[in-house]
Design a protein around this nucleic acid. Sequence first.
DNA 1: CGTCTTATTGAATTGTCTCAACATGCGTGG
DNA 2: CCACGCATGTTGAGACAATTCAATAAGACG
Lengths: 253, 253
Amino acid sequence: MKKGSLATIRTACKADKQAVSAEVECQNCGLDPICSILDYAEERSGVPEGVLLRRRPVSRGETIFRKDDPFHSLFAVKAGSFKTYIPRFDHTDQVVGFHLVGEMLGSEGMANGSYPYTARALENSSVCELRLEKLEDSGKPIEELQQGIIELLGKEVAFSHELIASMVHQTSEQRVAGFLSSLSHRLHRRGMPSQEFNMGMSRSDIGNFLGLAGETVSRVLTKFQKQGLIRLKHKRVTILDAAAVQQMATGLD
Amino acid sequence: MKKGSLATIRTACKADKQAVSAEVECQNCGLDPICSILDYAEERSGVPEGVLLRRRPVSRGETIFRKDDPFHSLFAVKAGSFKTYIPRFDHTDQVVGFHLVGEMLGSEGMANGSYPYTARALENSSVCELRLEKLEDSGKPIEELQQGIIELLGKEVAFSHELIASMVHQTSEQRVAGFLSSLSHRLHRRGMPSQEFNMGMSRSDIGNFLGLAGETVSRVLTKFQKQGLIRLKHKRVTILDAAAVQQMATGLD
DNA sequence: CGTCTTATTGAATTGTCTCAACATGCGTGG
DNA sequence: CCACGCATGTTGAGACAATTCAATAAGACG
């Protein structure tokens, strides 16, 4: 089956919307640099069929890969959100990150050959999948693609370092403020609403991720609300004073 | 000036030893996969002169790059150790990592085009430098090299995630134990003595990195010594009961 | 050999956790 | 569609771990 032009394929991303939350535009997606290369290559028949799987739905609670699964694909979140965590025997899972619309998932598995954590959908979501193993099987490594992956990984590393730097020292309020700020910025970067949005993850998940008790997260959030920085309605947050929140984090996104 | 064979070059690494601490063998160095590729390529004249600079001495306190310097090179620590940190206006620098013998430095700069932190020698050290910009200038990108860099970055990402996961929750004792364990393992991996070694960094640096006060680090270390887990003499540590230290790090409840 | 930085140790303070009770929302099945 | 039950969120009080401030000791370096 022959694929259409780059533009045609890109547009098709928006086509059949289903009962999940808003999708990220392709040009705002973290996988896009790679997609573009593949689209381009595909036209010249340089890439085998089935390497790039577009927009597979994933329902809430479902996992797209588990810790120690052999690495096979990179994923991009097209809609919804995911948490990544390391399961532990005693059920005290360690949350290592949240992945929002337009963000990559699974790059960490590339080096060791297996995924270092489990990725679970926090809500009904959809993903694109880039089957790198199939690409390698084709025996036709693509230089541009490699460069794109290098960029992705580099950014991931930089992000992690920032995270460590900003997270290790701060008080609970700084952490939560930083977390909110980070969510908002990341959504904004992908062209999604960033003043009011849904926090798919539970208070415990946030606390686990930030190194705080779930109760503390709750306390801090209600305090922020009392201070007029945010408005809370269940899992829905409205950031009323972005500058103040940003300021409070000091470390920022 | 024509270079010798791969074997000749490798051996030359050990040649003119100076007044710095023991060097890592090339085959134990993190840069080695890349070096090997370059050595091989070099023989076939595929790589321009001056891309790989071997064993430049760096004295204590010197920096090899600073935050926001434009990216130009990857470094490998051949001897000594470095700390990487983000300088802040108020002199409350944030230490983001320590780099021991045989480890890479600077890979995070590849994506954004500039180094995200400053790298400073903790003691008299030496480094190898891989000038990637020059390599790119040659207009002859090397596929194997790219693959090597992808591996490196992937490992870096995995390492960072582990770090975040392990660090955020734990008590001071777990963090310090983990830190000691990490140093020991990393030295061992590079073929260096791992039971007794030098901690080039100050207590405050360790604390800063671990998210603890320097005093707390000191207290925990002396406690470990009283418990017979380690022996302390200034900056020199001897790990007496590696198993117990390891056990303590991973959370024994 | 003296000075300056770094490390150790102590005492009081505070932030966050734990435990616990209660409230709220959500999904399931009636 | 409502009611129920369970998971999740909120709020309070006491416990404790780590911080801060401070005083002293020990090394490092010129």
